[in-house]
Simulated scan of single mutants.
Amino acid sequence: MIDHAHDLASVREATDRLLSAAAALDDAAVAAPSRLPGWTRGHVLAHLARNADALVNVLQGRPMYVSGEARDADIERGAPRPLDAQLADLRETAARFQAEGDAPADWSRTVELRNGVTDQAARVPFRRLVEVELHHVDLGVGYELEDLPKEFTEREIDFLTDRFAGHQDVPATTVTADDGRTWTTGGGAAGGPVEVRGTAADLLGWLAGRRDGSALSVSGGPLPALPPL
């Protein structure tokens, strides 16, 4: 069962960790490249702020973004700002998201995200948690996939393996963590079954497009190439 209140508390804790880490940067570090191709750390911080506002829109029944072009333009416009402006924006937008999450609502209702994707409102806080945790790693400031809370890592692997289940470009694949936990995904492409084994952090990195999978062990075929998120 989805516990949106628990996830909102996790979002608050993850946001505090990210803000503390970002506050130790300076303007030059904010302008430096992040781990995401073509994005500076300023791009990552600007995206996180705009994503918080976008998810407020979702919870209030409005379009997530006016358009894809407007979303990209807002990120580009916000990326060059100095650190103090980035931090203030992120704090304010995070507070708006938390306030919306704390308001009485029907969390069983269906909401619409980008590109016609729909979901239960109760899952929106976890979607925000994914943004905050993975983009904290993307900043390249010492917070690694291994530092993510275990509960988050397992839930995100759950989410991503489910997302790729039946995908036409992914062969039937079993994903096995070192602790023995197993997931299945793919199945829409020829080949396989493939078994992919590794640490939970390395599995998440591969599934989320943050690592190339070279640390994983693979049997039954080559490491499946996953579609972009």
Score class of each variant (00 low, 15 high):
residue 28 A to L: 11
residue 173 T to V: 06
residue 39 W to G: 08
residue 217 S to N: 06
residue 78 G to S: 01
residue 203 L to D: 04
residue 213 G to K: 10
residue 190 A to C: 08
residue 123 R to D: 06
residue 158 D to K: 02
residue 125 P to W: 12
residue 23 A to W: 05
residue 119 D to H: 06
residue 209 G to I: 02
residue 215 A to D: 02
residue 100 E to R: 13
residue 169 D to A: 14
residue 208 A to C: 09
residue 161 T to N: 01
residue 89 D to L: 07
residue 138 D to E: 02
residue 54 A to D: 03
residue 116 G to H: 07
residue 47 H to Q: 07
residue 206 W to F: 04
residue 148 L to G: 02
residue 75 I to G: 01
residue 222 P to R: 12
residue 168 Q to M: 13
residue 142 G to T: 04
residue 160 L to A: 02
residue 222 P to M: 12
residue 228 P to D: 14
residue 159 F to Q: 13
residue 39 W to S: 08
residue 40 T to F: 01
residue 61 G to D: 01
residue 13 E to Q: 15
residue 50 R to C: 04
residue 121 A to G: 03
residue 78 G to F: 02
residue 164 F to Y: 10
residue 45 L to E: 04
residue 140 G to L: 06
residue 134 L to E: 11
residue 165 A to C: 14
residue 110 T to L: 12
residue 74 D to I: 04
residue 117 V to C: 08
residue 185 T to D: 03
residue 92 E to H: 13
residue 46 A to I: 01
residue 41 R to P: 00
residue 111 V to K: 05
residue 118 T to V: 15
residue 74 D to H: 03
residue 153 T to F: 08
residue 187 G to E: 10
residue 34 S to T: 12
residue 128 R to I: 07
residue 215 A to V: 02
residue 78 G to H: 01
residue 83 L to S: 00
residue 67 S to V: 04
residue 199 T to E: 04
residue 160 L to N: 04
residue 117 V to L: 15
residue 160 L to F: 06
residue 45 L to Y: 00
residue 20 S to R: 15
residue 200 A to Q: 15
residue 195 E to L: 15
residue 113 L to C: 00
residue 47 H to V: 07
residue 12 R to S: 15
residue 115 N to A: 15
residue 160 L to R: 00
residue 35 R to P: 05
residue 14 A to E: 03
residue 174 T to N: 14
residue 81 R to L: 12
residue 61 G to I: 01
residue 79 A to H: 01
residue 214 S to C: 07
residue 192 G to H: 03
residue 21 A to R: 09
residue 107 W to Y: 09
residue 217 S to T: 15
residue 112 E to K: 12
residue 109 R to K: 09
residue 21 A to T: 11
residue 56 V to W: 00
residue 24 A to C: 02
residue 34 S to L: 14
residue 63 P to N: 11
residue 25 L to Y: 12
residue 121 A to H: 05
residue 172 A to P: 02
residue 229 L to P: 11
residue 86 Q to P: 00
residue 3 D to W: 10
residue 55 L to F: 08
residue 209 G to E: 10
residue 3 D to E: 09
residue 199 T to P: 01
residue 188 G to W: 06
residue 115 N to C: 10
residue 88 A to M: 12
residue 189 A to R: 12
residue 125 P to N: 11
residue 222 P to S: 15
residue 31 A to G: 15
residue 138 D to Y: 00
residue 151 E to A: 11
residue 89 D to G: 08
residue 185 T to G: 05
residue 167 H to S: 03
residue 120 Q to I: 12
residue 88 A to W: 06
residue 134 L to T: 05
residue 128 R to Q: 07
residue 92 E to G: 15
residue 53 D to G: 09
residue 49 A to F: 02
residue 32 A to R: 10
residue 81 R to D: 09
residue 96 R to Q: 13
residue 124 V to L: 10
residue 48 L to V: 09
residue 50 R to M: 05
residue 95 A to F: 07
residue 219 S to I: 08
residue 175 V to G: 01
residue 26 D to N: 13
residue 8 L to K: 08
residue 89 D to Y: 03
residue 117 V to D: 14
residue 94 A to V: 06
residue 31 A to F: 14
residue 22 A to N: 03
residue 123 R to F: 14
residue 24 A to W: 05
residue 90 L to H: 03
residue 77 R to W: 11
residue 29 A to F: 11
residue 70 A to G: 03
residue 53 D to M: 05
residue 55 L to M: 13
residue 137 V to D: 05
residue 147 D to M: 02
residue 165 A to F: 14
residue 76 E to H: 05
residue 187 G to L: 02
residue 42 G to N: 09
residue 210 R to I: 09
residue 211 R to C: 04
residue 47 H to I: 02
residue 192 G to I: 00
